[in-house]
Simulated assay, not measured.
Amino acid sequence: MRFPASVLSCLMLAGIWSGSATAAETPVVVAAENTWGDLAAQVAEPDMHVTSILNAPTIDPHLYEPTPADARLVAQASLVVANGAGYDGWVDRLVQARRGPPVPVVKADGWTGWHEGDNAHLAYNLPAVAAFVSRFIAACQATDPQHAGAYEARGKTVMAAIQTVLDAMTTLRTQVQGQPVAATEPVFTPLADSLGLVMKEQAFQVAVMNDVEPPASSVAQFDADIRQHAVRFVAYNAQADRPSVQRLIAQAHAVGVPVLPVREIMPPDTHWQDWMHGILTQVAQVLGQPTP
């Protein structure tokens, strides 16, 4: 995915590649996805303004093509936040195309637990989320020292909210660990691993994530596991639709295997912690457990 040279040329001619906002303006934080933008806003606002490029839950971040408007946002940002891990590399290109001083970039893959080749869907990885918030607090304080205490206070509130999600996950794990589940793509896998669920159909998931049609053998195995009720539910990435996925979801509905829709982009007008609590509640419900 290459950012068009024509777009860069137009932006340079328009004179917008001038770096971050002036001191008289409220600093701007630009987030690649609203999952990270929401966490950033809970820490930074109202002392900084946070805007997210990807907000619609129907958009696949892997396939997104940035626009001149996106480039303008990044060019004027005082801070940039992103997932990283090869998930939203288009942000790196926008940052590199800026003029002026370098802009601080806080990525979720800056977590010490991340290793090359690990699952890139870090919004479902609670330790990665907590580490991101901690580093973002420090970045806000360095960018805007005048409000350092406010960033620290709001950051503590966000960290407490993350802990409530972790507590709910820990409670649910004691009730569901060891149960076999499946997914159409490894979006949900970090959370499934934390819950102690046994994730099946790995070959199918990797193929879909890499935007290739899964091999016939993995499709057949997935279909057999659904028909034989060898999995308790199927987590379905509603942002990565293809015929092989549609057929398996239809099969699951037909034989009464629960389907759990998950997304890479949060629904609008929600907070990350509420989104995660909602997913944990759905998992508990489909597995016949009390709400954590």
Score class of each variant (00 low, 15 high):
Arg135Ala: 07
Asp70Phe: 02
Ala168Leu: 03
Phe188Lys: 00
Glu116Ser: 12
His271Asp: 08
Gln202Thr: 13
Pro27Lys: 01
Arg263Ala: 14
Leu63Phe: 04
Asp223Ile: 04
Asp92Glu: 10
Pro180Cys: 00
His121Arg: 00
Ile59Trp: 12
Asp167Met: 06
Thr26Val: 13
Asp193Gln: 14
Val91Trp: 10
Asn210Gly: 09
Ser134Val: 03
Gly256Lys: 12
Ile265Val: 13
Val262Gln: 07
Asp274His: 12
Gln177Asp: 06
Leu94Ala: 13
Asp92Pro: 05
Val262Asp: 04
His253Leu: 13
Ala192Met: 09
Glu213Thr: 13
Leu195Gln: 08
Asp92Arg: 06
Ala238Leu: 13
Ala183Phe: 01
Leu54Met: 02
Ile53Leu: 05
Pro261Ser: 09
Val50Asp: 03
Val133Ser: 05
Asn125Cys: 04
Val103Cys: 07
Gln96Cys: 14
Asp38Ala: 05
Thr157Glu: 07
Cys10Lys: 15
Phe233Ala: 11
Pro292Gly: 06
Leu8Val: 09
Pro66Asp: 00
Ala160His: 10
Ala161Asp: 15
Thr112Tyr: 09
Ala203Met: 04
Ala5Pro: 04
Asp193Lys: 10
Ala97Leu: 12
Thr26Arg: 14
Ala138His: 05
Glu65Trp: 02
Gln251Arg: 15
Ser217Trp: 03
Ala235Asn: 15
Glu213His: 11
Pro145His: 08
Ala230Glu: 08
Ile279Gln: 10
Val208Cys: 12
Val181Gly: 09
Gly15Ile: 14
Phe3Ile: 06
Leu195Tyr: 07
Leu8Ile: 11
